[in-house]
Amino acid sequence: MVLKWRWCIQMSYETRPQTYDETIKILEKKDYRGIAEFILPSVKDAEEVSLEHTQLSVPDMREMDFLTRVNMNSESFILHIEFETAYKSNTEMMKRMLRYYTYIKWHNDLPIYQVLVVLKKPENIKNIQGSFESTVQDLDILKYNYKVVKAYEIDKSEILKEGKVVLYPLRVFMKHDEIDEEKHIEECLEEVEKLEDKDYYFLTVECIKKLYKESKYEKYVKEEILMQSSLYREPYEKGIKEGELKGRREEKIETTIRLLTKKFGTMPEEVKEAISKLDLVTLELMIDEIFEYKSLDDIKKYIQ
């Protein structure tokens, strides 16, 4: 059984370089509010936190990791989080974050709070920067900054104290000065093994593989626990595809209800229930036409 698991690790890196990005997406779907509150603690007091569409058309760039709309104390803004394990240079990262900012702003005119979470300590970068200024002929052209969170400087025990289960797999990347690497990996696996949802065990293993690519620690992985995860039992690609479709549909339901409420006021519960049963294509059609509606009667063709 160990040999089988070892082979799976090798194959995942040879054929599935995007696996880690999928890991972040799964954690987001499990508890996106928990992630938002960890990165920005004041979100705990928010009246509304809702997932936003992250598949914006950004040429030559991967999909954004995490995008939510936050309504808090009469202020609305977009929270954008990127998780990075291979930090190459300040210049490259700033350009990437600025391109994301530009595309988010193009599609949504709300203020944007950007956060970069660096999971793995860079080998050649001593000072991670999160801001720059551009001046031409003594004229201030641009001042740009985003918050930088260094996960590898966070004490992993703090995550357990706060009970942020959605972050348990990411504890693999966090500070563990008091114990060596092997003991650290063993402890991280033991904590997620206690959880009822075995997907967290599977996702912790994925994080281990990202941090320790030579797979030195497979001896600590219990395949009988790993196999209890739905992510292990089902074909991974199929699970991701279905999860993405379900997640997109849920996002569209929330967006449709939010926009209609903003336009017409409090929505009748029966209307909300009817919208929640619509398919993805119908929801997208409703959103496209939402600014043409004069009253709620205009949406009856979709919900009857």
Rank of each mutant, 00 (worst) to 15 (best):
residue 55 Q to H: 14
residue 100 Y to I: 05
residue 94 M to G: 03
residue 50 S to L: 09
residue 45 D to S: 12
residue 115 V to W: 08
residue 113 Y to V: 15
residue 74 S to T: 08
residue 70 V to G: 11
residue 33 R to E: 08
residue 56 L to T: 08
residue 34 G to A: 06
residue 34 G to T: 03
residue 43 V to T: 09
residue 49 V to T: 07
residue 109 D to T: 02
residue 90 N to T: 00
residue 54 T to V: 13
residue 95 K to G: 09
residue 57 S to R: 10
residue 68 T to Y: 11
residue 45 D to M: 09
residue 53 H to V: 13
residue 85 T to P: 06
residue 29 K to C: 07
residue 97 M to Y: 02
residue 36 A to P: 13
residue 58 V to F: 10
residue 56 L to W: 04
residue 81 I to P: 00
residue 80 H to R: 09
residue 71 N to E: 12
residue 76 S to Y: 02
residue 115 V to Q: 09
residue 73 N to Q: 12
residue 96 R to F: 01
residue 37 E to L: 07
residue 89 S to P: 10
residue 85 T to Q: 09
residue 113 Y to E: 15
residue 55 Q to T: 11
residue 74 S to G: 10
residue 70 V to A: 13
residue 63 E to Y: 08
residue 28 E to H: 05
residue 29 K to L: 12
residue 95 K to Y: 06
residue 105 K to V: 01
residue 86 A to N: 15
residue 93 M to W: 04
residue 25 K to W: 09
residue 32 Y to A: 05
residue 102 T to A: 15
residue 61 M to N: 15
residue 103 Y to G: 04
residue 55 Q to L: 11
residue 115 V to T: 09
residue 86 A to W: 11
residue 72 M to H: 05
residue 86 A to P: 04
residue 44 K to L: 14
residue 39 I to S: 13
residue 84 E to K: 07
residue 58 V to I: 15
residue 54 T to R: 14
residue 60 D to N: 13
residue 35 I to G: 03
residue 39 I to C: 13
residue 51 L to M: 08
residue 110 L to C: 03
residue 98 L to N: 05
residue 113 Y to G: 00
residue 72 M to Y: 04
residue 78 I to G: 04
residue 104 I to M: 01
residue 93 M to H: 04
residue 96 R to G: 05
residue 30 K to C: 06
residue 38 F to I: 02
residue 44 K to H: 15
residue 53 H to W: 14
residue 36 A to V: 02
residue 93 M to D: 07
residue 33 R to F: 09
residue 89 S to Q: 09
residue 49 V to N: 08
residue 30 K to A: 08
residue 47 E to T: 14
residue 108 N to Y: 05
residue 37 E to Q: 11
residue 52 E to Q: 13
residue 36 A to R: 06
residue 92 E to D: 11
residue 84 E to A: 02
residue 65 D to N: 07
residue 83 F to L: 14
residue 51 L to R: 15
residue 44 K to F: 15
residue 47 E to W: 11
residue 45 D to N: 10
residue 43 V to D: 06
residue 93 M to I: 08
residue 95 K to I: 08
residue 96 R to V: 02
residue 64 M to K: 06
residue 107 H to R: 10
residue 115 V to N: 12
residue 109 D to Y: 03
residue 78 I to E: 01
residue 101 Y to V: 04
residue 75 E to K: 06
